[in-house]
Structures are given as C-alpha cells and as structure tokens.
Design a protein around this nucleic acid. Structure first.
Lengths: 153, 153
DNA sequence: TATTGTTATACTCTATAACTATA
DNA sequence: TATAGTTATAGAGTATAACAATA
C-alpha cells in the first residue's frame, strides 16, 4: 500500500534526523559538561521559572531525578532554587546570570553547527519545513484548519 | 535581519520536534527496559553487523561504553558477539532472532504513536517533509542539485 | 609498536521507596 | 490526609586509564 510506505519512509527520516540533531545537542552539551537532559532543563528555564514538580512532569522524569539534576547544576552556580512565600513546600527553579550566559552561548553553538545544513534550504523551503513540523510540536491540536493558521512570521 | 530570524525560528522548531520524537522513543524503549542508546544500537543492527569500534564511532561513544552496552543486551539474549576469523581481535555484533523480533515490535509501536500526527499531513506534504529533511540526514552532501536526486520512492 | 576490545574506577542519570515539612 | 520535595539505594550510561590479546 502506497500510503503506508510513504509513512514508513517519513518515519524513518524523522527518526534519523532526530538522532542527528540529538547528536549535535549532546556534543555541544558534553563540551560544556552538560547532559542532554540538563540542556533541556536550561532551555526550559530560559523563559520560565517552574517548580520542581512541573519541571519533572514536563521532562517526563521522576521528582527525585529532578532533585539530583538541579543539585548538580546549582552546585555549579548555573541555576538556583527559590522559596515560594505562599506555599512553603514549593521550590521553584530559575537560571542565574551565569546560567543564562551559558545557555545563550550553547544555543549559539548549536546554531552555528546546524545553520550550514539548513542554509542549503531556500528561504521558502525553510518556511515550508517550519510549517510541516507543526503537527509534531502540537500533538493534541484540533486539526481543523490548514497549517498556516495562527503563526505570523 | 529576516533571514536570521527565519533560521532561528526553524532551529527552535527543529530542536523542539527533536525532543518530541525523542520522548516517544524513550517512552517506547523504557516500556521494554531499553534506553534510547540501546534503541539506537538495535536500529543500526537491524541491517548491519558492525564491529564494536564501528558501532562506538557511529554512536559517538567510547569503546568501553560499548562493551557495557553490548554486555547488558547480550545477557538478555537480544544480541550476540561474533568472532572474526581473519582478525581475531575483532568482535562483531548482531541481533539474535529475539532481538530482531523486539526491534520490529518497537518500531511498530513508535509508528503507531507517530502515525496519527503525521497523518495530519496530506500525502504530498509528507513527501515534501521527507525531502526537506534531506539536508539533515546527509550533512556532508555536495549540495549541487535539487533535493529530489537519488531517492527512488 | 599499533590496534581491538575488556576491565577497573568514578561520576552522572534514572526510578523506587521511605522520609520530612507543609498544607 | 494529601502534596512538594529530599534522601537512600541500586542499576544503567558514560568517559578515562590501564590492561590483554592480536596484528
């Protein structure tokens, strides 16, 4: 069946490109003693200040795993724990200035590595790719309209 | 600069969809006591019989890490080590029948999870996406021609 | 001597279970 | 009682260094 084959081929390409990008992220992280998971934590913390449980849920990790992860990064001065005055059980997490700097630097490195590949796409192709990735980014979207809806470039 | 912005947006989408797919792969792996790395090993072994060093190089891991990884999977009867008669230093690795079965089953599960999202793309959009991922899959391509070159559906 | 792979060691990542503090 | 987070523990993943076997 043709539709099945096309799905298989796409799935395969998707998985392989996923490993490709993951490999870049790991490499950049490792060069700075950060695991992929920590890189992800830093990415989330770029514009948020979640509590431990939220972070764990978002990453699909146990809260005890989060404790260790945050411990190690905190010990390096890259992020900090804050107390919530309303509910003193809650601990929220945020990047220190050093953590912010590092995060932006790492994103820059990733960008430098991937930009050459992506530059092989013409601008309108990049726009296309961005749109086609949409279903993966919002898995539970009500998929009524065409994919060109709410995004104003 | 507009071209810069479009690159940033695409990079961001690419990283996020990477984490999305990774999350699916991890979940499916974890449900069968396989790490992401082992899943990757199994994916490679699906149609190859590499030696330890090749495998390590391909995954970007140290050979000592490979030893442990292969040890644990071998202990479960999912893959095996073979001796090379030409050069007795070489150890090559291959899936056992049980390993093959498991691998195909896992790929099926991944497919079942991702298919609904990808089905939101029309067939010609899937074809498009497949083509647009090409630059990521072959990072060192001489990028002379259009991306529709050597792949025959 | 150089290469292939394993072993010893140390650290990170991860989950489960038991715990403390707060609500 | 229930929730937020930490700690204790154990196993997997990882790299570095030292090693054995083969070339």
């Amino acid at each position: 069946m043709n539709s099945e084959d096309s799905l298989d081929a796409l799935l395969d390409a998707l998985v392989r490109s996923t490993f490709q990008v993951t490999s870049v992220l790991s490499r950049v992280g490792a060069a700075n003693d950060l695991s992929l998971t920590q890189l992800r934590v830093f990415g989330i913390l770029r514009d948020r200040r979640p509590r431990m449980t939220e972070l764990a849920a978002y990453l699909g990790l146990d809260k005890s795993t989060m404790s260790g992860l945050i411990d190690r990064a905190e010990r390096r001065g890259l992020l900090a724990r804050g107390k919530n005055p309303d509910d003193r059980r809650i601990v929220d997490v945020y990047l220190t200035p050093a953590g912010h700097e590092l995060t932006e630097r790492l994103y820059g490195e990733v960008r430098q590595i991937l930009a050459p590949e992506l530059s092989r796409l013409r601008p309108e192709q990049r726009e296309q790719l961005l749109g086609l990735l949409e279903p993966l980014l919002n898995p539970d979207d009500a998929h009524g309209g065409p994919q060109a809806t709410g995004r104003k470039s």
